[in-house]
Design a protein around this nucleic acid. Sequence first.
DNA 1: GTAAAAGTTAACGTTGACGTTAACGTATAT
DNA 2: ATATACGTTAACGTCAACGTTAACTTTTAC
Lengths: 141, 141
Amino acid sequence: MDKYKIDDVAKESGLTKRTIRYYEEIGVLFPPERSEGGMRLYTRKHIERLSQIVNARDVLGFSLMEIQDFVAIREKLDEQKQVYWKTEAAEEKLSQLREIKVMVDQQMDMVDQKINKMIEFRKEIEHMQKRVNDGISKMTT
Amino acid sequence: MDKYKIDDVAKESGLTKRTIRYYEEIGVLFPPERSEGGMRLYTRKHIERLSQIVNARDVLGFSLMEIQDFVAIREKLDEQKQVYWKTEAAEEKLSQLREIKVMVDQQMDMVDQKINKMIEFRKEIEHMQKRVNDGISKMTT
DNA sequence: GTAAAAGTTAACGTTGACGTTAACGTATAT
DNA sequence: ATATACGTTAACGTCAACGTTAACTTTTAC
C-alpha cells in the first residue's frame, strides 16, 4: 500500500509527470522499481526527495546540475555507511570521507552566503515598507 | 569624470556587454544617456543597480521577470516621492500608495518564506556534516 | 471482454537568458 | 589621417528545463 503511480506523485508534488520522468532521466531522482508491465512504482522516499528538489530549485535557485552534485554527495555518504569500517579498505574510505567533508563544507558556506544576502535584501524591502507607510500616514493625518 | 563606457561597466560588474544591453532591452536596467555618437554613458547608479540585479538573480534565484516587477515597484515609489502631496490628485496618490504597499508586503512575505526554507536546508547540511565528522572520528580513534 | 483512463518511449517545440557573428559607425593614440 | 580598439544594431545560435504531441501498451472499471 506504499506504492504510488506517477500521477499520484504528480498530484502530491505539484510537478507534472513529464518533469518527474525528466528528473529521473537526468539523474536527480533515483529510478523507482517497475511493475510487470513497465509502470513506475514510487515510494514515500521519492516524494520526499522531490520535495527537496523543488525547494532547492525554487527557493535556493539551484540549477538541476547543482542539485545533481548535491544528490551525488548524499549518495556517496549513504554508500559509505553501508560498508563495515574495519576492513582492509579502511584507508581509502577515510580519504573518501575527507573528500566528502570538503564538499559538504563548501555547500554549507554557499548556503550561509545566500542567507546573508537574503537578509540584506530583506532590509532593503523593510526600508521600502517604511517609506510607503510614512507616505500613507503623512497623507492620512 | 563619473561617466562610464559599457566596457568599464562590464569589467566592474563582471557581466558581459551583451548582458548589460540585454538588461536594458528587457527593462531591468534603466537606460543611460547617450553621447553625440550614440554611445551609452553610464553612472555609478547603473553599476549599483547591476550589482543588485546580480544578487537577486544569483543569490535569491529570481528570474529577470521577477526582478522587473521589483524594479517597477521601486520606480513607482520614486515617482510618488517627486510629486507634491497637497494637490487635487491626493486621493489618487493615496490609493496608489496603498497598492504599492500591498506589493511590497507581498515581496516581504516571499523573502521571509525563502529565508525560512534556506534555514531548513541549512539544517540538512548541518546534519550531513555531523554524519561525516562522526564517520571520520570513528575511524581515527 | 471491452472501453476508457492512465501508463510508456521518442521526438520535436518553446521559452528565458544570454552568446556569437556580421556589418557597420565612433573615439583615440600615434 | 589612419589604424585599431571600442562602440552600435540586428539577427541568428545555444542550452537548460521542461511542454506537447504522436503512436502505442497496460490497468482499471464496468
